[in-house]
């Protein structure tokens, strides 16, 4: 599979599969209502670099919330607040006062549950992240657009209609376009919030393939509802329940031999 991948320039490509930790969450509690009730409670977890980590758990367990903490999308909610604990990404506490959330998001990209391309052309969608960084040079943009579309396996399908509206693509294509848009900014981490929940099985399979390819280059954190998907794409899995991290281990362990009763109940389909 990796033979077909474009050879990455080693200078800007992070190393693959070291045991280095890229995200370090330490005793994190988080609240959506200024601390009255905690949606997340005392979460501690280390996410390794260059791997795919899956967050699973029943609805409302806080997995998406945690994901949105990682690029501070929760800032959009006025009453959101980190009550205790820290999140360190690349060794930096991301909630520190000298962190610019905008810079953070350039390093930590995100793909959403429902594909949400802008009502612009395909080209403009991919170029958007670069344009907001002030890049105007056409050739740089062209190159970045092509590269990202190729990495997201969309290039061959859209290369002749880059100026068409992105909204004319099929659902799976739109979601891959969103992935292309995200990686065009060259983030180190890509967060995926149930990226396949709105797609049919075939489109889902293509996205899963894509995740496997992207893993070569990016650290991926994926929230999923679908346990088979977690087993297919992820290296490590974290199981959340009612705002708490129940168990975090290699994926095979979670699905084969979980140490906690709740985990076992969940992965075996007894609730959830």
């Amino acid at each position: 599979m990796s033979d077909t991948l474009p050879i990455l320039d080693s200078a800007d490509a992070p190393h693959i599969a070291t045991n280095e930790t890229i995200i370090n969450i330490d005793d994190l509690s988080f609240s959506y209502d200024l601390g009255k009730t905690n949606t997340l409670r005392n979460i501690s977890l280390e996410i390794p670099k260059g791997k795919v980590t899956a967050f699973i758990g029943p609805s409302g367990c806080g997995k998406s919330t945690l994901l949105r903490c990682l690029n501070r999308m929760n800032d959009l909610v006025d009453t959101a607040k980190v009550t205790t604990g820290k999140i360190n990404i690349l060794g930096q506490d991301i909630n520190a006062s000298d962190v610019d959330a905008i810079e953070l998001r350039k390093h930590v990209g995100m793909v959403f549950q429902k594909y949400n391309p802008f009502p612009k052309s395909i080209y403009e969608n991919v170029a958007y992240g670069l344009r907001v960084q002030g890049i105007k040079n056409k050739s740089i943009l062209d190159q970045a657009v092509e590269e990202s579309l190729q990495k997201s396996a969309l290039w061959s399908e859209v290369k002749d209609r880059l100026n068409d509206s992105a909204l004319g693509l099929s659902g799976g294509q739109q979601q891959r376009l969103c992935i292309a848009r995200t990686i065009a900014v060259k983030p180190q981490i890509v967060l995926m919030d149930e990226p396949c929940s709105a797609l049919d099985p075939i489109a889902t399979a293509r996205i899963e393939e894509l995740i496997a390819e992207l893993q070569q280059e990016f650290t991926i954190v994926i929230v999923t509802h679908n346990m088979q998907q977690a087993t297919r794409v992820s290296d490590r899995t974290a199981f959340f329940y009612l705002g708490e991290l129940i168990e975090y281990a290699d994926t095979q362990v979670i699905f084969g031999n979980p140490s906690k009763k709740q985990t076992e109940d969940y992965v075996s389909g007894r609730f959830g």
Partner: peptide, 14 residues
């Protein structure tokens, strides 16, 4: 390796 203590990778650039 990131020299975390000295350089904040997410400091405001622009």
């Amino acid at each position: 390796p990131e020299s975390a203590s000295s350089a904040n990778p997410f400091r405001s650039l622009s």
